[in-house]
Amino acid sequence: MTQPDDYDHREEGESLFEWPLDSAGLRMGAGELLDHLFEVIQHLNHTDAWPLTILPPRWGDVVVDRERRQISAVCLWKRKPIKNHKED
């Protein structure tokens, strides 16, 4: 079982994350792209297979490169706790 202290001492950091822009994303305005980016981050944070919890980026830390068809953002993150399952 994970100890309470383990929860507070998980690895954390700041990294550049990159996501591809599909054809719909290429047509979106700045506000729509940010909304979509936040939805993607929220989805990853709720996905057990994704090992990190990502904080939404600050406005100045997001770069949309339509020519390269990608959006990138510098985000703070923290490793998710390892879930231990107790068998009955």
Rank of each mutant, 00 (worst) to 15 (best):
N45C: 10
T53R: 07
F38E: 00
H36T: 14
L52F: 01
E32H: 04
R58L: 06
L44E: 03
F17T: 04
P56Q: 05
G13Q: 13
L52V: 06
G29E: 15
D22L: 09
T47K: 14
M28H: 03
H43E: 08
F38W: 12
L37S: 03
E39G: 12
E18R: 14
F38R: 10
M28E: 12
L44W: 05
N45P: 04
W50E: 15
H36P: 10
L34E: 06
N45W: 07
Q42S: 15
G31V: 09
P20E: 03
A49I: 11
G31S: 08
L37K: 08
I54Q: 07
E18G: 04
I41N: 00
A49S: 15
W50A: 14
S23V: 00
F38Q: 07
H46W: 12
E32V: 09
L26S: 11
E39A: 15
N45Q: 14
L37G: 05
D22R: 08
A49F: 05
W19F: 03
E14H: 13
N45H: 10
E18K: 13
V40C: 13
D48F: 08
S23C: 09
I54Y: 10
N45M: 13
E14P: 09
R58P: 02
H46R: 11
L37W: 03
G25C: 02
Q42T: 15
T47Q: 14
H36C: 13
D22K: 09
D35I: 05
L55H: 06
P56W: 07
R58Y: 03
A24F: 13
F38S: 02
P51V: 04
Q42K: 15
I54K: 09
E39C: 10
W50C: 08
F17S: 03
I41K: 07
G29I: 12
P20Q: 01
S15V: 11
W50Q: 13
H43G: 04
A49G: 11
I54R: 03
T53Y: 02
P51F: 05
P56N: 12
L37M: 06
E32R: 01
I54D: 09
L21E: 06
P57V: 10
S23G: 06
D48R: 13
E39N: 14
L33F: 00
Q42R: 15
T53Q: 03
E39H: 13
L34Q: 10
D35G: 09
I41W: 05
R58M: 10
G25S: 11
G31P: 12
S15K: 14
E14M: 11
G31E: 00
D22W: 04
I54M: 06
T47D: 15
A30W: 07
H43K: 14
